[in-house]
Computed example of a mutant assay.
Amino acid sequence: MTDQDDVVIEVAGATKTFVQRRRGERRLRRERVDVAAVRDVSFTVRAGEIVGYLGPNGAGKSTTIKMLIGVLTPTSGRLRVAGIDPARQRIALARRIGVVFGQRSTLWYDLPLRDSFALARHLYRIPDDRFQANLRRFVEMLDLGPFLDTPVRQLSLGQRMRGDLTAAFLHDPAIVYLDEPTIGLDVVSKAAVRAFLAETNRENGTTIMLTTHDTADIEQLCRRVLVIDHGRLGFDGELAVLRERLGGDRTLVVDLAEPLPALSVATPGARVIRVDGPRQWLAFPATASAAPLVAEIAARYPLVDLSIREPPIEEVVTRLYTSGAPTPRPAPD
């Protein structure tokens, strides 16, 4: 059972409908059409979780986040964030949350990065000692020192994103929403962002809700995922369970002492899919244990090393979209 004292985000039957005007068949007048961006979505998030919120474009991810921060009011249903109704108490909520939108900056465009942080201190009324301590820590973690005095407009995308993350975390928010925080970043910047988020969650217990199309973000940061499509929540649970439910193949990578033809194995469902010198790749069902296959190869062939690769998360999520959503399950305890 989920301890309700630990729940910091509660969404119960949330629906958001937008009204659109479209031309009728005879184009004499526009017809009113109700479009549901989010349909009867329910979930809870516990303090200290990092939750991935996945879905294709237009699935309802951003609409959900905007309801959770109070920008949009749900058409029906109930939302509570840190015990607060987001739409009714936006100012009180703002002091408890941080928000980063990958394609929009919260920094002041013409000001040096250092001055943007100083303004954030005043907006959030951060005590000076806490502000200085957090700023020193984040500058070191995100390597911000060389461009603290650079106007935001002159920063690269990766530098600007690291600045946005710092501004979002400076006031020690209990919850941070991240919408595509690594979009357009190079490999080095992505690694810095992920390391920062993982450490801040670990050290401060910050709850993080992450929407992204970069599946490496999910792989490296999230144990639990929510999957939404066409406004409906299709899955809520551990990433490993999602992989297991949707099947597919795991891959056993085998390094042999010498090159050999494709291995012949009797383990049900296992098959060689690639051979490159002494290295061979064998696929086997994701729901099956690797132990019988490993034992068979070790007993019959000159084995040097082996490793197991899970199905890529992008393949798993794509399979969910195209094959129909599994029955939602409660969040893991």
Rank of each mutant, 00 (worst) to 15 (best):
E244G: 04
A262L: 14
P74D: 03
Y177N: 02
I97A: 05
A257Y: 09
N201I: 04
V81T: 03
N201D: 06
I97K: 02
D249S: 05
A133S: 12
V176T: 00
Q132C: 13
V51I: 11
D229F: 01
L210T: 02
V241T: 15
R95Q: 14
L107A: 08
T63S: 03
S307K: 11
G234R: 03
L246C: 14
V241E: 12
L260I: 13
A291L: 15
E31L: 15
W281V: 03
N57D: 07
R162L: 06
A120S: 14
T267C: 04
R160K: 10
D34N: 14
V294C: 12
R130T: 12
L72P: 00
D129Q: 10
V225C: 04
I97T: 07
G184C: 09
V265Y: 08
L107G: 05
A257V: 13
L226T: 01
P328F: 10
S289A: 14
R162A: 08
D276E: 09
F196G: 02
D3H: 07
P259N: 07
V7G: 03
F18L: 11
N204D: 12
A299T: 15
L293K: 02
R319C: 13
I91Y: 10
T207F: 08
V304N: 15
R30F: 15
L54R: 00
Y124C: 06
D276L: 06
D276K: 02
D3P: 10
R104F: 12
A331F: 08
T251D: 05
D179K: 03
F138C: 05
I308V: 10
R279D: 04
L155T: 03
T182C: 15
A266E: 07
C222D: 01
V188L: 14
A262M: 12
L111S: 03
E310M: 13
D5R: 11
Y109L: 13
E315V: 12
P328K: 07
E180C: 07
L320G: 02
V51E: 06
P332G: 00
G52H: 01
R329I: 11
G48V: 06
P292Y: 03
D305P: 07
I91T: 11
R279Y: 09
R39S: 09
T166D: 10
F43R: 00
L119I: 13
I308F: 08
A92G: 09
D6C: 12
I50F: 05
R223T: 12
A120G: 10
P151I: 01
V253R: 12
V241D: 13
A94D: 08
D305Y: 13
N57V: 08
R243P: 00
G145T: 07
V100L: 08
D143R: 11
F131G: 01
L72T: 03
N204P: 00
S264P: 07
D305L: 13
L197T: 03
G102C: 05
F138T: 04
R125Y: 06
T318N: 14
L142Q: 06
S42I: 05
G83E: 08
S116R: 02
G24V: 13
L263E: 08
D172N: 05
Q280P: 01
T75N: 05
Y177P: 02
R232T: 14
L185N: 02
A325K: 12
N134G: 08
K190W: 02
Y124T: 09
T200M: 15
M67K: 00
A257W: 13
F147Q: 01
Q159H: 10
I313W: 00
L246A: 09
R32I: 14
F147W: 02
T64D: 05
P259S: 10
